[in-house]
């Protein structure tokens, strides 16, 4: 039964090898989509290339439906899957800050690694900046601790908050994704799609 690691199918050492392989898949697909190139990522914010939105929502839908069906078939114990704990205000404010950094820097942490290994010089500057920003956060941590823990809600899912079944929420996410795909295409046509 999955998740295999939690059921003791392999050791933590083997898990690190699996991390390497899964990471290679992650890097491969990010590069295939064009996410090693900062300008392609940034054009998302001018409605000229909606690849970021399309890739993100496609992968969220695939992984979400996979989890849902594997759990329905009894192949996977969903209670053993890690859920990011929610710190509502910390994550809202952190997300806003990160979004500013995305438009200015042109990368996010994962894509900047792909940018760096494919020869994008700006990705190295971005990574240097990211390390500096994290260092500053660490230095300021004692005075930020209150903000960092603001809005703690535990490991809550959308289904808990809206009091719906996971199936209904998943269906809503699929509908939302399709609306984003159609809307994204319409926006690309309106603002002038750039082939990069």
């Amino acid at each position: 039964m999955a998740p295999f690691f939690k059921y003791g199918f392999f050791t933590e050492q083997t898990g690190l090898i699996i991390a390497l392989i899964i990471g290679a898949g992650f890097g491969f697909w990010l590069e295939r989509a064009g996410f090693g190139y900062s300008r392609k990522l940034a054009l998302q914010f001018y409605f000229r290339d909606m690849t970021v939105l399309n890739v993100m929502f496609t992968s969220i839908v695939v992984a979400m439906l996979g989890l849902l069906f594997f759990s329905l078939f009894g192949w996977l114990d969903i209670t053993k899957i890690y859920i990011n704990p929610t710190y509502l205000w910390a994550q809202l404010i952190g997300g806003l800050i990160l979004g500013v950094g995305f438009a200015v820097g042109g990368y996010c942490p994962g894509t900047s690694v792909v940018g760096a290994v494919t020869g994008h010089v700006d990705a190295y500057f971005f990574l240097g900046g990211a390390m500096f920003g994290m260092f500053v956060f660490g230095e300021m941590f004692p005075s930020l601790e209150g903000l960092y823990n603001w809005g703690y809600m535990g490991d809550v899912r959308l289904s808990d908050v809206f009091n719906l079944s996971s199936g209904v929420v998943a269906f809503a996410v699929v509908v939302l994704a399709i609306l984003f795909f159609i809307g994204g295409q319409w926006l690309e046509n309106k603002f002038g799609k750039e082939e990069v």
Binding site: I60, N84, A90, Q91, I97, L98, V100, G101, Y107, P109
Partner: peptide, 27 residues
């Protein structure tokens, strides 16, 4: 931009991969 993002990612306990993508898929 990287510095702003690094700071934001620590405050929110994750970035586009660890929080938006992974947290998005687990709802």
């Amino acid at each position: 931009g990287g510095a702003i993002m690094g700071f934001g990612a620590r405050l929110s306990r994750g970035c586009t991969s660890g929080l938006a993508l992974t947290g998005g898929a687990t709802l």
